[in-house]
């Protein structure tokens, strides 16, 4: 079984800082592996461990420092990793990222059976890359998965959580699944794993090596473009009352709700 996990480096959204123009202060960003990618790597490692003879490959697209998340994936249990990096990739939207990933997989990882991604990246929050990648490859896809188990070499059982409840599907491989939060937590890399990650060489694939011309990738190859960003208007705290007399506090709350015309 050849498993690929696509991961993404994102700024830690709990520690964002903004400049005086309400734009993200880029230099202060702390980069981490996207939290949903952590679950995708964990699920991929579990599938690999349950299916002897499997190989797990981690890939990411990003600037040179995105190698850090590949090292983390190796430390968690991936066997090898590749970085897709090129100046020409800058400005790629999720559609274009999915296209570049699909070309890389077709060319360099053609015998892939299963691809896992995080459901969303916490920066773009789009959830587009996984299903779009599947469409480019002609594979089935399944989003919002929280569990996956191999039933055979070609059948994967996936648990999908939706508004309707938990849906259990069988997917005929090769296929793509997008992982959200699971009932299990991503493992913390072991010291042995970290040492292995430091030893492992991470080759870089650029546009030329993938046979991609510059007008098919990056901003030029992207159907969408971000024209403007601004900081979400901050919500101000309102009334704060002492609750040591619960009855009095509740009366004040009910008065407040009446003023707001909701009660």
């Amino acid at each position: 079984m050849n498993i690929v996990v696509c991961v993404k480096q994102v700024p830690d959204t709990a520690h964002l800082r903004f400049d005086s123009n309400d734009q993200l202060a880029q230099e202060s960003l702390e980069n981490v592996m996207n939290p949903f990618c952590e679950y995708a790597v964990e699920t991929a490692v579990r599938l690999k461990e349950a299916h002897e003879g499997s190989k797990l490959t981690a890939i990411t697209m990003g600037p040179p420092q995105a190698k850090e998340v590949l090292k983390r994936a190796i430390a968690m249990g991936a066997d090898e990793a590749f970085l897709l990096s090129d100046e020409a990739f800058t400005g790629s939207d999720a559609w274009s990222t999915a296209f570049i990933l699909s070309e890389a997989i077709k060319k360099n990882l053609p015998s892939t059976d299963l691809i896992l991604l995080g459901q969303f990246a916490t920066d773009g929050m789009s959830g587009v890359t996984g299903p779009a990648l599947a469409e480019f490859l002609g594979f089935p896809s399944m989003t919002f998965c929280k569990k996956a188990e191999l039933k055979s070499d070609t059948i994967l059982e996936a648990h999908r959580e939706t508004e309707r409840g938990l849906e259990i599907y069988e997917i005929t491989l090769p296929g793509v699944i997008c992982i959200m939060k699971c009932d299990y937590e991503p493992r913390i890399p072991s010291i042995k794993g970290v040492m292995k990650a430091n030893r492992t060489e991470i080759p870089v694939w650029d546009a030329a090596s993938l046979g991609l011309s510059a007008d098919k990738v990056g901003l030029k190859g992207s159907p969408t473009m971000v024209a403007k960003t601004w900081r979400k208007p901050k919500k101000e705290g309102g009334i704060k009352v002492d609750g040591s007399d619960p009855q009095a506090a509740v009366s004040q709350l009910i008065d407040f709700l009446r003023q707001q015309k909701v009660m």
């Binding site: 959204t13 964002l16 929050m125 473009m225 971000v226 024209a227 403007k228 601004w230 900081r231 979400k232």
Partner: peptide, 17 residues
């Protein structure tokens, strides 16, 4: 649309496609 953990709003446009 909201991005960056709902902290940053982005205006998205579609140049050609």
């Amino acid at each position: 649309r909201p991005t960056y953990g709902e902290n940053l709003w982005a205006k998205v446009v579609f140049p050609k496609n």
